[in-house]
Design a protein around this nucleic acid. Structure first.
Lengths: 198, 198, 198, 198
DNA sequence: AATGAATGAGGGTTCATTCAT
DNA sequence: AATGAATGAACCCTCATTCAT
């Protein structure tokens, strides 16, 4: 019985993932999720106590991962050493190594957490993530006296997040995903260095 | 009465703009818009014949501008000549000139048109805009044998759009807006050139 | 000014006639009538104090005619003499003469009065008309010992009314209309005589 | 719970039948149906997914019967042989036998299907039924050179339909219903034969 | 005579959630 | 563990009618 129960629970989670992915939290329909899962709405409430709880079941772990990432990025951020060189080949290699470590964070459910959570208690995650990136970029941008550094920090962050979400959305192959994320980061770093004031 | 009418109409439009901006077309509530405008929902229908018509009143002109931009970009796209130089200063100047011409298109309502129009007849605009940019980038990216050119075209487009929307959202000063858009474009061009395969 | 006023009033009446004819009283829309009449709904209320008053303006006279017809049918009902003969040619001639006298009653507005008045104070007219006819038929049917005389009286009345309304609806030419009404009456009389018990 | 469910479902259907009967599809109010059924409108939607679906639940079977009748009338139409005789007694007997076969089609819900379905996908049934009858009458009417045969075909059809609907509306006893339908048909046939040109 | 802004009630419909079974 | 009946609030929208101008 336990087996069957878990099976249905996973089915519900899977269908919920798709529904939230397509319509966002607020526009997703529990009825639709129940129907796709071949169960009733009443029974769905037996597994998850509310719409938000269902969403939470999907992204809770991702949220913990996100928090960990935010709080411990110092430990994983290796490639700073590359900052010295101007050889793109080296950068690319270093970035790939780095990304392969953090890439597992960037799942479809992470996408939900950041991008489809309006109406839930996670709706601030997106802003938090942007702020986090902004801070990091600002250090470098200010250092290098970038044009409009203050403003560009936020913009570049939004930009990077958009890329990240696009990649997550469109590519499920882990290797490809990592490659593209690395490439995008590289792209951003080059851009960021390029707009230095001479 | 004419005076008062216009006043309320504008109030409605303003509140609708905010409501659509915050919740998107589908989740926006006419009741809420009416309440904020200190009128009844029945009266709101006196001014706009449907929810979509209200949205259209906000973004219709922007849509025309968008179409014009898509169809006539050939005539305005001057800075291609700059492609030869590597002097960032020159690029920046050329880009700013170019952006100042197209910048009026990028209003807050343009933001609604592209980003909050799901459920309306404009919901394809975003994709169209992305495709438009993608095509343009692909030419250059393929030429320069960029790593993962095909995929990066789409990603860079999404990224650029995200920047654009962020800038529109956060800055209402026309000069600042133009400056930042130009800077972002510059950023993107440098990035695009920089990730060449050696 | 008086001239213009009457002109618009007639336009409204005409459009109302069409609207009531197509949709019936309850489903007719004053907005639609106003729009078709190239005026505003406020102005429409200047001419007619309510939806029902507008309907009344259309069928009031017809209603008076109907009442007169009901109360004075003794004076006009000539062709009873024909009841003696079995020569259809004679009947047809007599019926046509008779119908030509009463035919002007059966206008399009009479159709509205009988058939599109649900929701107004005239909604009983239809039943009254049926009862009126029923009484008349019953006399003859009982006399001639028709099968199920009691029940057939009502049924034949409904039937005759249906024919009448169909003819009014489909034929605007006065001569044709009279001809068909006469033919239908003839048809009914023959039927009524034919189903005698042997 | 199954028992109670069916009970309410039937209550709803019954109240809906009355409401549709009185006001027609478009003017019927789901709120009213819900109130009469001592439930909420939300719960009504638990049983029927839309207003039209509720109507369909009432008349769907009747519609199938109607289609069958239209398509298979050739097989059941026995009494053509009687066309030779002028003995009304024989006709009456043959007609009753015929009607008893088709009479189950003519239920109260058939009345809804034909007469109260404007606004649903069944709104063409009435016209189809009229056309069907018209074709049948026209054959005979033309043959016998009836006065105004073309026009009378339609009129007689409308007339017959009116009778039919009246009988359905007023009589629920199956035997009485059959008897009256047969009598009406007889009435019509005699009328049709009687108005021959000499 | 004419305008059209405003109201309030009602239309069909969808929803997350609760709860007795 | 599972059902599905029931609720109540909200959704967009239409309407006849009133009234200040």
């Amino acid at each position: 019985m336990q087996y069957k129960k878990d099976e249905l629970k996973n089915t519900i989670l899977q269908n919920a993932e798709n529904e939230f992915f397509e319509k966002g939290f607020q526009n997703a329909s529990l009825r639709q999720i129940a129907k796709l899962s071949n169960t009733t709405i009443g029974n769905l409430y037996h597994y998850f106590e509310s719409k938000e709880a269902l969403f939470e079941a999907l992204v809770g772990q991702e949220y913990q991962g996100f928090l960990f990432f935010i709080n411990n990025h110092g430990n994983i951020e290796a490639p700073n050493q590359a900052w010295e060189t101007r050889d793109i080949g080296i950068w690319r290699r270093l970035l790939r190594e780095f990304i392969q470590k953090v890439s597992p964070v960037f799942t479809k459910r992470f996408y939900l957490l950041v991008s489809r959570s309006q109406g839930t208690r996670y709706e601030t995650v997106r802003t938090a993530f942007i702020s986090f990136m902004e801070e990091h970029f600002l250090e470098h941008l200010r250092e290098t006296k970038t044009h409009c550094a203050e403003e560009m920090g936020k913009i570049i962050s939004e930009q990077l997040l958009a890329s990240l979400l696009t990649i997550i959305r469109d590519y499920s192959d882990e290797t490809k995903k990592s490659e593209l994320i690395a490439e995008t980061l590289l792209f951003t770093l080059i851009g960021a260095m390029g707009i230095l004031e001479d």
